[in-house]
Write a protein that binds this DNA or RNA. Structure first.
Lengths: 154, 154
DNA sequence: GTCATTTCTTAATCTACATTAAGCTCTAAA
DNA sequence: TTTAGAGCTTAATGTAGATTAAGAAATGAC
């Protein structure tokens, strides 16, 4: 368990790394994301204060996600040691978020995903660029612009 | 921990239930799914032999998913007791599947999701109707028909 | 067996969102 | 102050997959 200070933009983990860590965010904001074959980023998770973030692969297998800092952050970095997981309920909370997200991606149109994002991450909306929100929602920045135009017209 | 025999088609859990359980499948096949406002089903997970399946909500909150049997099945039913979770690595395995699935839904076209489904669930393909596979992939049965036509033409 | 249902496929049309490209705004550097 | 470059928006066009509808095939009830 190690306390680390990182600067905005700094990369903590890249796809393919072995022995990837788990990060607890004390202050600041991290994100994890995948990059597909066309080079397009897909943000998988934002992690503001008090969140944990990491790649869900066993520590001996190369990881799938990139993790970097969107703001200057202070984090606690720990090994992925199964025996060290004292807070099982934190894992279960995370699984609940994932379940909701999958159902959203399968059924809700872009507009509803945007509204859901705003209610789940009210503080984050002002802290990240639009294109990152689009990436999280699984749409293009252009489509997000259109969604917002309609959203506020209502 | 209770052993139960269930018949094909039998509902084990419906959306809104409290104190939802966790099921370990000894034989047979279960599925969990959501139903959206338009009445459309979205299969969230298949659980063949040796899988665990359940809703990722705390036991005191109403659950989100329906769970039923696709085949006659024999299952072990247990309470959602955090202290009883001895196999943390099973949770972690599940999270890995969810992570892959979200990235798939965000970036891969229907054809690749179908191919990925076949490799991850090779035994299941013959055991469930096409429309359930479509529901799992997040496309319509009509679109799946088209995907398969192209897939086998290659 | 027959009849009724449900499932699967095909084809025509429609639509949400992607893609492309251009213009606008803001910041930062020289 | 101009210039370069991100980031955001707008609009035109393109496309994957949805929707609708109809027919074929499989399944189940009697």
């Amino acid at each position: 368990m190690k306390r680390v200070q990182i600067k905005k933009g700094q990369l903590l983990q890249r796809k393919g790394d072995l022995h990837s860590k788990v990060y607890h965010v004390e202050s600041g904001l991290l994100r994890s994301y995948a990059i597909d074959e066309k080079g397009k980023e897909h943000i998988y998770m934002f992690a503001p204060e008090n969140w944990i973030i990491g790649d869900s692969v066993p520590p001996n297998r190369p990881c799938e996600l990139f993790i970097d800092a969107i703001e200057d952050s202070e984090i606690l970095q720990s090994e992925k040691d199964v025996s060290a997981i004292t807070e099982v309920h934190k894992l279960i909370n995370r699984m609940e978020v994932l379940q909701k997200r999958i159902i959203m991606l399968m059924s809700a149109p872009a507009m509803e995903r945007y509204e859901h994002f705003i209610t789940t991450y009210p503080d984050i909306v002002q802290r990240v660029p639009q294109k990152m929100i689009a990436s999280y929602l699984g749409i293009t920045p252009e489509a997000l612009s259109a969604v917002k135009r309609i959203h506020f017209k209502k």
